[in-house]
Each structure stands twice: as structure tokens, then as C-alpha cells.
Design a protein around this nucleic acid. Structure first.
Length: 422
RNA sequence: GGAGGUGUCGCAUAGUGGCCUAGUGCGCCCGCCUGCUAAGCGGGUUGAGGUUUAAACCUCUCGCGAGUUCAAAUCUCGCCACCUCCGCCA
């Protein structure tokens, strides 16, 4: 949710941000009308309520006719108070409903346009030239099968399409990646976390995932719980309804958790292997800070993501996501995309978003500073999404015989080379 | 899953229909006093929204929501969380 005052003080800024996203600005006029309605209904309620309270104080001391008259008058007022209160609640609900549909104000620094209008900020490393090396690269599924690392057939048998087992070195690879990622994050000052993967509606709604992404979310009707698509959700809700001391910020958390995604609307897309799956595990970074620190922290998050990809010795590029492709909650987003040899392109392996006050207003997370309290800023960034990282490591590290060279950072866990099963 | 209990200002507690504009203690903040410190004394100390140049003031907030009543921290109902016991179970 954005700061409602902006609607009154600078509605054109909101309209401009909507247009940057390629969305209609009509909602701004609806919101302004709803806000006026809300404010006038509050004034009415307060006036009637104030009178009721004042007269009510006289009743215990009053006698005889005076008392009878007071009782009659307050009884009448009582109904007015109820009506005014109902009107006020309704106006507030209407306003909130609209506000929740309004996305965060897309940053003017983000490139304009849709999915394909990103700007490449940097490219690191060089994709290998397999033709020059004299062999055709195998894709991650073929490699994974040869290594005994990935089993999608049995994944489908047991759980359906887009499910998989990590087996043998595949399972070890995930555990090693998790261990290294969490250790690095802890060294950078993040508090390691293992959060719940099922959350109440408030957490899901508060992080903005019940908006345009709602179809992509698993919901357990019987328990009114959602399976999270990222630990961003439980990490953001961790400090909900809390007031954080400014002196203790930034608060940085790194969580390992499963992520569940229905992948509705992606039929036929990335169907081979484990690139797009209904469940994967991920180490996620999350930060609470002040609004004025948010942009700098966003750069730091990106820096840590790059450190991680550097440590994995992967070729990658960094893109500045276009405003039309931001989620509900971000004002700006940087994605890191690793080179995938058999696809001949860079694919997203991590993402860093600056959500400013959008989530903290919904979850009521504030910072107490010198001048009172203010909503906190929240940011999130992927450190290591297991399945896509494994894909990148296998495909980029492969050799002609199907063995896979690993980056030095993993040698203590798995040795230098993964070898195909006999 | 069953039975019982609890939920009040940062913490602890008082409050069983109007005198609650929520008292008290501790903690914390400001000041006074004082070789220093402590003690003592005085004042302040939930948060949100609004009116106003400001000072002040108004409304909401006693786990959450509905209800009864002229009036609810207080009575009724529903929900949530926590505690104890029983059952079940990694």
C-alpha cells in the first residue's frame, strides 16, 4: 500500500507511476473520491460521538425530568452514532479495497515498458564455446540423469508434472549449496532463519501475493492457509504489527525454505527438466530498513547476489527489469540471469526487489526514529534458488564425457568433479 | 480432537455497568537537589487518525469482531492466541 497522503498532495505522481507500469490511471480518481468520502464520514462520526459522550456524562448526576429528557436525547443520538459509525466503516472499507489494488509506485529509474524492455546493466564471464571444444552440450536433465542427480520420471509418478526428486549427488548438491549460501549470508550479517512455509491470509495479502499473482498460489481451504511461493512472505510478516528501533536497522534475514508455485498460465513453457517446477527450495535474503536507506540497500542486495554467482563461477548478466514487469509490491527490480548453454540464453536465477513501504503499510511494520514512527522499507533478494542453480552448474560445468566440473567453493562438499554413474 | 483456565499502558498488577479522562509499582525519559554516584523530590511515558500558524483540542485503541444498553475494560455471543490436563503423533 502506498502513502495515502500522496493521493491528496501529488495525485499526478501516482498517475505517472501507473502509466509507467502500462496500467490505467483511472483508479487514482476513484481513490481520491473514496478518500474524501472516508474523511467526511469520519468527521460526521466524531461530531455525533462527541456529543453523545458529553451528554452521557451528565446522566448519573441528573434527576427527575432532566434525567428523563437526557435519556430520550441520548437514545436518539445512539442511533445516529450507530449509523455514522457504519457509514464510516463502509467508507474506510471501500477505500482500503481500492488501495490494495493499487500497485507500488514504479520508480522513474526503472526502464519503461514490458517484459522485453529490460536494460542490461552488466554481463559477467563468457559463455563457453562448445563447438570450439568439439562437443554438443547436454541439457541439465540429460546430465542429471547420467549423474544420478535428478529423477523427473518418478517425480511425475508420485506427484505429477513439474515435480522431481533430487537423488544422490543432486541431493548433496542442494545441501552443499544451502550450507555455503547460509554461511555466506551469516558472514555478511544476515540472521539465518528457517521459517514456516504455510501462512495465514494476512501474510500473503500483506506481501502483495494475493493480487495479480493470486492464481499462482496454493491454498489449503480446510485450514485457511497458503503455501508460500517464497520465504519473502514469512520473513516480511515476521515483524508484522511491530515497531522497530531505528538504531537496530537494518535488520537482515536469510531464510532457507521450500517454495510452492502453481505455475498457472505457464502451460507448455519450460516443461523439460526442473527449470519451472511446483516446488523448489531457496535461500532468500530479506531486509528491513528505513525509506531513505532502501535504494542503497537494494544495490547492496544485488552486490551480494553477484558475489554469490561469482563464487559459483557462472557466466551471468544483470538486468534492470522494466516497470511493466514489476510485481505489485516493487518499485524497482534487478534480476541476475545465468547463461544456460542448451537454451542459448540467459535465464533468471535471482531477483532483488525494493518494495519500499508497500508491504510494511499492509503488515503494520514501523520504525521508531527521532521524529516518531514511520513505515519501514522492505527489500528482498534471492541468494540461491536450488533448482535453477543446479541447472546452471550442471550445464556450464559439463565435459564431453558427461562429467561436471564444480566451482572451488563446492569442492569441500562434493569434490572437484561429478562423474556419470557406470 | 476433548476438558478447563487466561488475555488491561514496555513489564508486573488494580479495576465486575456511569466518579476509568484506565489507578499503582517497576523500568525508561526530562528536571530539581546533591563533592561524584545512588537515594530523594517534581513532571513525563501505548499507538493511530484528524482540526490548528502554534499552544491546545477532538475521535478511536483494555487480544479481535459482533451484540445488549442512554452508557461496556466490566454483561452476552463468536473468533484468535497462550497455559494446564487427556488423547493421538513425526
Amino acid at each position: 500500500m502506498i502513502d495515502p497522503r500522496i493521493l491528496r498532495e501529488d495525485p499526478d505522481a501516482v498517475r505517472a507511476a501507473q502509466r509507467r507500469r502500462g496500467e490505467s490511471a483511472d483508479i487514482v480518481d476513484e481513490l481520491i473520491a473514496a478518500d474524501e468520502q472516508r474523511r467526511s464520514s469520519i468527521a460526521t462520526f466524531e461530531a455525533v460521538r462527541g456529543e453523545q459522550k458529553n451528554l452521557g456524562k451528565l446522566i448519573p448526576k441528573a434527576q427527575g425530568d432532566e434525567k428523563t429528557e437526557l435519556l430520550a436525547r441520548t437514545k436518539e443520538l445512539s442511533q445516529q452514532v450507530k449509523d455514522a459509525e457504519a457509514a464510516q466503516t463502509q467508507a474506510a472499507d471501500t477505500f482500503d479495497q481500492l488501495m490494495k489494488q493499487l500497485p507500488n509506485l514504479a520508480s522513474a529509474d526503472a526502464p519503461q515498458g514490458g517484459e522485453d524492455d529490460f536494460v542490461v546493466l552488466d554481463t559477467v564471464g563468457t559463455p563457453r564455446d562448445f563447438a570450439a571444444e568439439g562437443f554438443e552440450p547436454r541439457d541439465h536433465l540429460e546430465l542429471g540423469t547420467m549423474l544420478g542427480a535428478i529423477d523427473t520420471e518418478r517425480g511425475a509418478k508420485v506427484s505429477g508434472a513439474r515435480f522431481y526428486y533430487l537423488t544422490g549427488v543432486g541431493a548433496q548438491l542442494e545441501l552443499a549449496l544451502t550450507q555455503v549460501a547460509m554461511s555466506k549470508a551469516a558472514a555478511w550479517g544476515f540472521t539465518p532463519m528457517i521459517p514456516p512455509a504455510l501462512v495465514k491470509p494476512r501474510a500473503m495479502e500483506g506481501t502483495g501475493f494475493l493480487g495479480q499473482a493470486a492464481d499462482d498460489v496454493y491454498y489449503l481451504e480446510k485450514d485457511d492457509l497458503y503455501l508460500v511461493g517464497t520465504s519473502e512472505v514469512p520473513l516480511a510478516a515476521y515483524h508484522s504489527d511491530e515497531i522497530l528501533e531505528a538504531s537496530l536497522l537494518p535488520k537482515r534475514y536469510a531464510a532457507f525454505s521450500p517454495c510452492y508455485r502453481r505455475e498457472a498460465g505457464s502451460y507448455g513453457k519450460d516443461t523439460r527438466g526442473i527449470f519451472r517446477v511446483h516446488w523448489f527450495d531457496k535461500v532468500e535474503m530479506f531486509v528491513y530498513t528505513t525509506l531513505d536507506q532502501a535504494a542503497a540497500e537494494h544495490e547492496r542486495l544485488l552486490g551480494w547476489e553477484r558475489d554469490w554467482l561469482d563464487a559459483l563461477e557462472l557466466p551471468y548478466r544483470v538486468i534492470d527489469v522494466a516497470s511493466g514487469d514489476l510485481g505489485l509490491s516493487a518499485i524497482r527490480k534487478f534480476d541476475c540471469e545465468a547463461w544456460i548453454p542448451t537454451q542459448g540464453k540467459y535465464r533468471e536465477v535471482s531477483s532483488a526487489s525494493n518494495c519500499t513501504e508497500f508491504q510494511s503499510r499492509r503488515l503494520d511494520i514501523r520504525v521508531r526514529g527521532e521524529d516518531g514512527t514511520a513505515p519501514a522499507a522492505t527489500l528482498n533478494g534471492t541468494l540461491c534458488a536450488m533448482t535453477r542453480t543446479i541447472i546452471a552448474l550442471l550445464e556450464n560445468g559439463q565435459q564431453a564425457d558427461g562429467s561436471v566440473r564444480l566451482p572451488a567453493v563446492l569442492h569441500p562438499y562434493l569434490g572437484e568433479v561429478l562423474r556419470p554413474l557406470a
